[in-house]
């Protein structure tokens, strides 16, 4: 079972690298923001999976909970910031 979790987390890591392309080459600031927020939600699941693989699940569930909160707050704050600045 742990092996299955490990393969799924490696697969999600591959998806994160694919999204990294959009973060690096995204035409505008907002495409980069989309890439960052997508990577944020993916690392959330990877964290919980790694928690199961390592066996210390309580710690990792708290970490992923905080990570979900932060990811949401950061996306809202940066969106609000770029709304006024009007960056293309």
């Amino acid at each position: 079972m742990e092996r299955f979790f490990l393969t799924v987390s490696i697969l999600l890591g591959l998806f994160v690298f694919l999204c990294l392309y959009r973060v690096v080459f995204g035409p505008g600031i907002f495409n980069r923001l989309v890439g960052a927020s997508v990577i944020g939600t993916k690392t959330l699941t990877i964290l919980v999976l790694i928690g199961f693989v390592y066996g210390r699940i309580d710690m990792f569930v708290d970490i992923s909970l905080v990570y979900a909160l932060l990811n949401f707050i950061v996306t809202i704050a940066v969106a609000k910031y770029f709304q006024r600045k009007g960056a293309m």
């Binding site: 907002f30 909970l65 979900a68 909160l69 996306t75 809202i76 969106a79 009007g86």
Partner: peptide, 27 residues
């Protein structure tokens, strides 16, 4: 707790998407 994270994501992810879209549309 994992279920709570899932519910939290279910509530906040569309909100974040909406905020990003609104910001992009306004700029």
């Amino acid at each position: 707790k994992i279920l709570f994270i899932a519910v939290f994501i279910f509530l906040t992810s569309p909100t974040a998407t909406h905020a990003l879209l609104r910001a992009a549309f306004d700029s």
